[in-house]
Design a protein around this nucleic acid. Sequence first.
DNA 1: TCATATATGTGTCTTATGCATATAATAAAC
DNA 2: GTTTATTATATGCATAAGACACATATATGA
Lengths: 135, 135
Amino acid sequence: MCHPHESHPHDQGCCTPPSGRMQGFIQPWLLLLLSERKAHGYQLTDKLNQNADTKGIDPGFLYRTLRHFEEEGLVKSSWDTEGSGPARRVYEITADGVEFLHTWAKHIRSTKEQLGRFLETYSARFKTSDSKKGR
Amino acid sequence: MCHPHESHPHDQGCCTPPSGRMQGFIQPWLLLLLSERKAHGYQLTDKLNQNADTKGIDPGFLYRTLRHFEEEGLVKSSWDTEGSGPARRVYEITADGVEFLHTWAKHIRSTKEQLGRFLETYSARFKTSDSKKGR
DNA sequence: TCATATATGTGTCTTATGCATATAATAAAC
DNA sequence: GTTTATTATATGCATAAGACACATATATGA
């Protein structure tokens, strides 16, 4: 299991470059979206699906994450029974949540820089001396 | 468990910005180092520890990863019984391993770009209008 | 009343990785 | 020459993220 040349559905890490999304990438997007306006899970799914980087989120994961955020005080929720269809749990970001989004953004910036440093070293090692053999 | 304001030793993902290293970050570094010269695990640990981004790797993880790479044909190993101390298992990257490193690098470049797109959206939302309230 | 769309969840499994611990051989100390 | 430290490799176990499948509930239209 987990062969580099087969592409298993949910190969993450291991010896394969993670084919899926990087870990902890959806969460800051959720907080960012909620910082724009309050929304319920289904709406958030729609918005995430409009962005290639966050497309195809698992609803189970989404709702669990939102509940988790609420436990942590990053968001708060209330039921919206207005309108048609089943009730929606509407999430709203808290001050703590906004603060936390800022912390998360700093982390993402630093991760991006780490990746940049890897790519620099990598490029220095393989600068055009790619010894392209066929392929 | 996993509260944003407590900093647990190995908080990864969840609702906290991952405090440790991002998933799948050490592996490409290992292949990159091995693409420069063959080495045994202990040497690789030393080299990783010289880089702030890869410092403090767990030996168990290192050796397991190397064995895994070997199963996948990305590296091959042989015992070095010369010199003092216990035998060292010396790892050498294969052609497949080099190719795979390139694939991995592409993935890292794309992840970096994803992070960039998040940060752009984030900055657009919070451009200096940080509404700094004390804190 | 039965199917369908909307909306929110739970159960469970795999995998990555950290931490603790085990093993083994040689070198150095006593 | 036996104990201790250093070098080196490896296994066992716990946890957490996330994917997948499935369960639940309400409203609407046929």
